[in-house]
Amino acid sequence: MSLTIDELVMPDALDAPGGDDFAEYATLSNDVERHTLGTDLLAMGLHEMLSEYVSTASRTRRHLVARHGDVMVGRAMITTRPLTPEAGAYLMVDVTPARRRRGIGTALLAAAEALAVELGAPVLKVAVAHSVRDGGERVEPPTGFGDLPADDPGVRFLRAHGYALEQVTRISLLDADRLRDLAAAGVPDDYRLLTWAGPTLDQWIDELAALRTRMSTDAPSAGMVMLPDPWDAGRVHEHDERIASSSRTMLTAAVEHVPSGVLAGFTEIVVSEGGAVAVQEDTLVLTDHRGRRLGMLLKRVNAEQLVATFPSVEAVVTWNAEENRPMLDVNEQMGFREIGREAGWQKHVL
């Protein structure tokens, strides 16, 4: 039976035309991640995955599916940024474990790469989860921080297709028992804490847009090609509305530098309705305000907000570059433990 690769058109809703195909696509993605990490803690619900996988004004996403007959055996996602096309494209390729080593991944990757190049991407990037195992031959990024098993299927596949490992990211989890024991420290002089649940408060939208833009340049990116990713009030509104429309709640803690009226830092946690695991999203403290333990303060305050708002949540999961030692120090002091690794791979094509 021959392999076919076609583009998947995203449905307007799960019960709209194409919804069944998307559900199969999303289930395959979750199954692959579960197989890689050995846990379903990071599995996304269909509504939230649909929300994240659609295109927006600042992000274009195209989707490919591979089938043997009527059975979906692989999928690929190609993400580009219309505002910064020179930053390249992010690719994701998944093949159901039972169908690997049959050329499906190679065919899907070739199709995804061709589409990305057609869209004008000068560099192709991959962020993918890898297994965590000690011993054996290791592969290290140029940063010297973190490593991966050389025999990991994803590692072997990407190296064979010309991708270079640039960065290793730690996936960490904070259990409920440790989460409920956290307590925030005092707020330094000249600073004021702010917290809210749901969409960004109107008075802070412009400030938060500025922080999100800085996040794209201040977060460690190793050798990955990264460019400033501009945010404005409209993009913040769109992001917040998309989160809320997918039955998720965003919890934000921010700190204002009172003399200047500027937000010096923020952190966000997203919780799915009825979900057991919350996702720690961006955390940033501006360079001029570092050294005051504001990062720790923000994370602890938001943890308190999480426990108070969603007492049934069992854990929080987060991602941090291995070279981001200041933030890893904060997480380790809070009690986060490693559950997996994600790596950034890159290949220049133009």
Score class of each variant (00 low, 15 high):
2 S>D: 06
12 D>K: 05
12 D>G: 07
21 D>I: 04
23 A>R: 12
23 A>P: 03
24 E>Q: 10
24 E>S: 06
33 E>I: 11
37 L>M: 08
39 T>N: 06
44 M>H: 11
47 H>C: 06
48 E>F: 02
48 E>Y: 05
49 M>I: 04
51 S>M: 11
54 V>P: 01
54 V>W: 03
54 V>D: 03
66 A>M: 13
67 R>D: 12
68 H>C: 07
68 H>T: 12
72 M>L: 15
81 R>M: 06
84 T>W: 11
97 P>Q: 07
97 P>L: 11
97 P>V: 08
102 R>D: 06
105 G>M: 00
107 A>V: 06
107 A>W: 06
108 L>G: 02
110 A>Y: 06
111 A>P: 05
117 V>G: 08
120 G>H: 07
126 V>N: 03
128 V>I: 14
129 A>N: 15
132 V>T: 13
133 R>K: 14
134 D>N: 09
138 R>S: 10
143 T>I: 05
145 F>S: 14
148 L>M: 14
149 P>M: 12
154 G>W: 00
154 G>Q: 03
155 V>I: 13
158 L>W: 02
163 Y>D: 04
167 Q>V: 12
173 L>D: 02
178 R>W: 00
178 R>I: 01
180 R>S: 01
186 G>M: 07
189 D>H: 14
193 L>Y: 06
203 Q>I: 07
205 I>N: 09
207 E>W: 08
211 L>Y: 00
214 R>M: 14
215 M>C: 08
226 M>N: 11
230 P>L: 03
231 W>Q: 01
232 D>K: 09
248 R>N: 14
249 T>S: 04
250 M>A: 15
256 E>N: 12
257 H>M: 12
262 V>R: 15
263 L>A: 10
264 A>I: 14
274 G>W: 13
275 G>R: 05
278 A>M: 07
279 V>A: 13
280 Q>G: 10
283 T>S: 14
283 T>F: 02
287 T>V: 10
287 T>W: 07
290 R>A: 02
291 G>C: 12
293 R>V: 03
295 G>S: 04
298 L>W: 03
303 A>E: 00
304 E>A: 03
306 L>W: 00
311 P>Y: 08
313 V>I: 13
313 V>T: 15
313 V>W: 00
318 T>K: 00
319 W>H: 13
320 N>F: 11
326 P>K: 09
328 L>M: 15
329 D>E: 14
329 D>M: 14
331 N>G: 13
334 M>E: 07
334 M>I: 15
334 M>W: 05
335 G>F: 01
337 R>I: 09
343 A>Y: 02
346 Q>I: 11
